Simulated assay, not measured.
Amino acid sequence: MRGEYKVPGGKLVAVDVDVAQGRLSDVSVSGDFFLEPDEALDAINAALTGMPVEAGVGQLAAAVTGALADDVTLIGFTAEAVGIAVRRALGKATGWDDHVFDIIPAKVLHPALHVALDEVIAREVAAGERPPTLRFWDWDSPLVVIGSFQSVRNEVDPDGAARHRIEVVRRISGGGAMFMEPGNTITYSLVVPTSLVEGLSFERSYAFLDEWVIGALAEIGVNAHFVPLNDIASDAGKIGGAAQKRFVAGAVLHHVTMAYDIDADKMLEVLRIGREKMSDKGTTSANKRVDPMRSQTGLSRDAIIESFAASFARRYRTKDADYTAEELAEAQRLVDEKFATSRWTHRVP
């Protein structure tokens, strides 16, 4: 059996392995990484040989680390990367090429419906009722979407929100507030089975799941990079951020919002925290815009979304898809019974 894992920003690790009586045998680690001294590769293979097939990434990585002398240097890979490759070889973890992804193009819906669809589709992916899914958001009205653990009163100015007729909805993932008016951001959700991020911490899974969009940004002329914990930045500064939620049933929701053309003056009237974050960024002048994606690419928002979808499809196996009537009905039910209720929105006052 063979498993491979490409370290985000690093090298490829491959493991060939057999299984005998419930334990690893004939383990052979290879790849385009660097390792000094050479003899350390034999130590890694020996450390993995005999490990139980049910050993998790942490156990496998600990075995590798414990077998290496202090003078050993791993360059371009880690002990955890070796563990992930082993788990993939055993079929316990999956890679991008093991899946066919649904791509749902941007479809105009009320933004609260998109918040609810994150939960609906994540449940379906976890249950195996829908394949891993990349879907783009489009919406017809303004909304502030706050993170699952944010305080409404700390984040939102009620007078500003009322003045601009902007409602507030709490999403199921953590992270910061999203100031959403039609056409002002580029937002997508990626829902994958937990097996795709097997062995990755929350921190590392952000970089892993963002790697494709870093490449997609390069294709439209933006030299972007990942900034821990969850930001995406270009040479000119931050352009977007990600949020995540893991479902114990077996799915990971990862969504990203990038600023396309935001009315900063209005945002600062609505978001309290926005004032503090933007206070040193020259946003006090009238009609100030936050427009990194528009100004850095010169492309329309629709063109960027189309380019992102095409870039994802070139990297991975995909098929075109859409929401089902049942999914939209379930999302509307969740809006009515959960996301539009004060009990949910103000659960953290």
Rank of each mutant, 00 (worst) to 15 (best):
V82F: 02
V15K: 00
V222Q: 00
G50Q: 10
G241M: 03
L268E: 00
E219V: 05
L196K: 00
Y323Q: 10
T73M: 10
T133A: 01
L299F: 03
E327S: 15
R153D: 13
S295M: 10
P131G: 12
K11H: 12
K11E: 12
A62C: 07
S279Y: 02
D118R: 02
V156F: 07
M258D: 01
T187E: 06
H254P: 01
G50W: 09
F179V: 04
S234P: 13
V191C: 07
A329K: 15
A20T: 11
T345W: 08
P111R: 03
A309Q: 03
V13E: 02
S151Y: 07
S285D: 10
A242M: 04
G221S: 08
L74P: 14
G10P: 13
P132C: 08
N184R: 05
G250S: 11
S151L: 05
D210V: 12
S28H: 10
D291G: 10
Y323K: 14
N230Y: 01
V72K: 10
K277I: 09
T324E: 07
R315F: 08
E219I: 02
V192K: 00
N287R: 14
L209A: 03
L24N: 00
H346G: 08
R88F: 02
V222W: 01
G215M: 06
V125N: 00
D70W: 07
K245W: 03
A329G: 13
V227D: 05
K107W: 06
V270M: 03
I75Y: 04
V144G: 01
Q59G: 15
L41K: 14
K338P: 08
V145T: 06
G22T: 05
Q296V: 08
T283Q: 06
F202P: 11
G66Y: 04
G91T: 10
V13I: 15
G298K: 11
M51P: 06
G199E: 00
H254D: 01
S141I: 14
T133W: 01
E4G: 09
L12C: 12
V270P: 00
T345K: 05
D138C: 11
R294F: 09
G128Q: 11
K288V: 08
A325P: 09
I232H: 03
V72N: 09
